[in-house]
């Protein structure tokens, strides 16, 4: 177990280094440079030259990457040119908001996806199993900005039950976040549930058709116990990986939805950073998102390892 965990952590760190290095290189390779980007089109030649001088004084790209990495490890991701504040300070409250939103969406999506996925598998080829996938197919294929807009239209404008956009500052306390979170969380949950449910269904069907489930029935184990004891534990193992990936997507991806709802999370910050050419901020966000992906998959791998006796125990 320890060896496996160590190997996994090492691979995770290596991934992180590779991603940040790639980001660092591509940011450097962009047409125009940090200086022209941050100083804007009206910058004088003199100002640009001063700025460039300052940067080249920091050494070549390798030295700058090592420095950046070293300070990133202490929590210092540099300073945003546009916002004139440390990148970490801009990130922290939005990261927290995103985490709250993703957790609420996950809390709705995953339990529902598991229950419905298993149900569809158990009632295979019956009405439930034909209806649900059709519904989820819609969830997966309709572009997210459409489904998000539809939700706003239905719940906020027609019904007036929920606020349409989030009019809160990034550093609002959680008590102010929760009331406005419902619509974006629902939109996110809908998409995430669609993917997860389909995977849970197919994992469950695989297990239902396995020899050991058939044999449990032939031993005279009642159907209820067959499902709870023999099917679910084995079907949920591969589902953990899928759920983890979906959760990472909820945290790091789906930028558009967060923009539609004007939610003060990482998504909107990313859009702002990119359109302002705020390169230190872009770099900081990319590193954070990569770290989230790596961390979530790491946790999922360790969880799967701990729950799967085939991996946990050595063959004797």
């Amino acid at each position: 177990m320890l060896g496996f965990a160590l190997r996994r952590v090492t691979v995770g760190l290596a991934t992180l280094v590779a991603v940040t290095l790639l980001m660092f290189l591509s940011v450097s390779a962009l047409p125009g440079d940090q200086c022209s980007a941050s100083l804007g089109r009206t910058a004088t030649e003199g100002a640009l030259a001063r700025c460039r001088q300052e940067i080249s004084g920091q050494g070549n790209i390798a030295v700058r990457y090592v420095r950046w990495t070293a300070s990133a490890m202490t929590g210092d991701l540099g300073t945003s040119h546009v916002r004139k504040e440390p990148v970490a300070a801009a990130l922290a409250p939005r990261l927290f908001n995103t985490f709250v939103l993703a957790s609420v969406a996950a809390g709705i999506a995953f339990p529902l996806a598991i229950v419905l996925g298993v149900l569809a598998a158990l009632r295979r080829d019956q009405a439930v199993d034909i209806g649900l996938p059709t519904l989820t197919l819609i969830g997966m294929t309709v572009p997210e900005f459409v489904s998000a807009t539809m939700l706003v239209l239905v719940f906020s404008i027609w019904l007036g039950w929920l606020p349409g956009i989030s009019m809160i500052p990034p550093d609002a306390p959680i008590s102010r976040i929760l009331p406005v979170i419902a619509t974006p969380a629902l939109a996110l949950a809908f998409i995430s549930m669609a993917h997860t449910m389909r995977m849970v269904r197919s994992c469950t069907i695989d297990v239902l058709e396995s020899c050991y489930v058939h044999m449990a029935r032939l031993r005279g184990v009642p159907e209820r116990l067959v499902v709870w004891r023999h099917v679910l534990p084995n079907a949920m193992l591969p589902a953990i990986g899928i759920i983890a990936l979906q959760f990472a997507t909820l945290l790091a991806g789906v930028v558009v939805i967060k923009v539609v709802f004007n939610y003060p999370g990482l998504g909107r910050l990313t859009m702002d950073a990119i359109s302002n050419r705020d390169l230190p901020l872009v770099l900081g966000i990319a590193a954070t998102l990569a770290a989230i992906y790596v961390a979530v998959t790491l946790v999922a791998d360790l969880l799967m390892f701990a729950l799967n006796p085939r991996l946990r125990t050595v063959r004797s």
């Binding site: 050991y212 004891r229 534990p233 084995n234």
Partner: peptide
């Protein structure tokens, strides 16, 4: 009761 052909596949992997 039945003694199956391939016992390896007929025992539930998650149970001792």
């Amino acid at each position: 009761a039945l003694v199956p052909q391939n016992a390896a596949q007929t025992l539930t992997p998650s149970l001792t």
